[in-house]
Design a protein around this nucleic acid. Structure first.
Lengths: 150, 150
DNA sequence: GCCGACTGTTGGCAGCACCAACGAATTCGT
DNA sequence: ACGAATTCGTTGGTGCTGCCAACAGTCGGC
């Protein structure tokens, strides 16, 4: 070993809040992905939305999850293929598909809920409960500020 | 207008710290990307590393920026094509390329520094300076925790 | 001198976030 | 009532970021 210079990130990057934010998000996202196993975040988001909204159109689900219509299609294709969700044309508005969670879908969602909660613990384990709350609050305010501006 | 149901995200997602983190990061990242204009974050990171490390190998730059060797190659290809960086074989170790910032590169970096700083202001504008410091500290601790575990 | 490790390079993949266009269906404006 | 504008699902792309595998050339330790 030739006495590595420690390879510290450049000063400008180390002090850059946006970088800290995106890199930490990437680390946590990686943990989440591992926790979700065979599912993607899109799958979990849509199942959660379907469970809470009840029968809803794809557009409604997409809007609730903040995802693009085309990505909703792809994710629902996966979920229907696994029998976790049913897509049926809405008789009241034939443009729409009514999406509902199947029994298997509900079971899968509960399972994922557990896995996701477990990951939250590990992801933010360096912080006390109070600190986690502070972090969530600060992030929520930043998030909201940028979301409000459409 | 037909009284939109507000399309609030599902409860489970709204309360999910990891989601808050990743979505906020995405919002901020978008601002950064706009601020960087014709450059990517990789470009800025590498130029910053090159400026602070002085003449260095691609491997050293990549390690400093936490990016993959292959991505370093691609980004440096862009930067050399724009004349912002020079790649020369290291006579002391012919495996390596010595990378240095050109005059144009330094000027471009200064310009980007300014743009990036301006973006930080806008990105975290809902927070007071104290709160920004708290946020940075919390993120840094989470970040460090996951980084230490290799 | 050999073998293992490192370097740059190529080429690939996955996830997430987008965007454009299209046909079918519905709603709005008048 | 009827044409225009809008909505919905779908298809098929794009870009950025973060990876990984393989390979040839080079170097270091033994």
């Amino acid at each position: 070993m030739t006495a590595r210079p420690a390879a510290q990130p450049p000063e400008r990057l180390r002090r850059l809040p946006s970088r800290l934010l995106t890199r930490t998000a990437a680390q946590v996202q990686r943990l989440v992905a591992e926790g979700l196993g065979e599912y993607r975040t899109h799958h979990y988001a849509l199942m959660a939305a379907a469970a809470e909204l009840g029968p809803a159109s794809q557009a409604a689900l997409g809007q609730a999850c903040g995802m693009d219509r085309s990505d909703v299609v792809a994710a629902l294709d996966d979920l229907t293929a696994r029998g976790l969700v049913r897509r049926a044309p809405d008789p009241a508005d034939r443009r729409r598909n009514t999406v509902v969670l199947t029994g298997d879908g509900e079971r899968a969602l509960h399972e994922l809920d557990a896995r996701v909660q477990e990951v939250q613990q590990r992801a933010f384990s360096p912080l006390t409960p109070d600190e986690r709350a502070v972090l969530a609050d600060l992030l929520a305010r930043v998030n909201r500020h940028h979301a409000e501006a459409e």
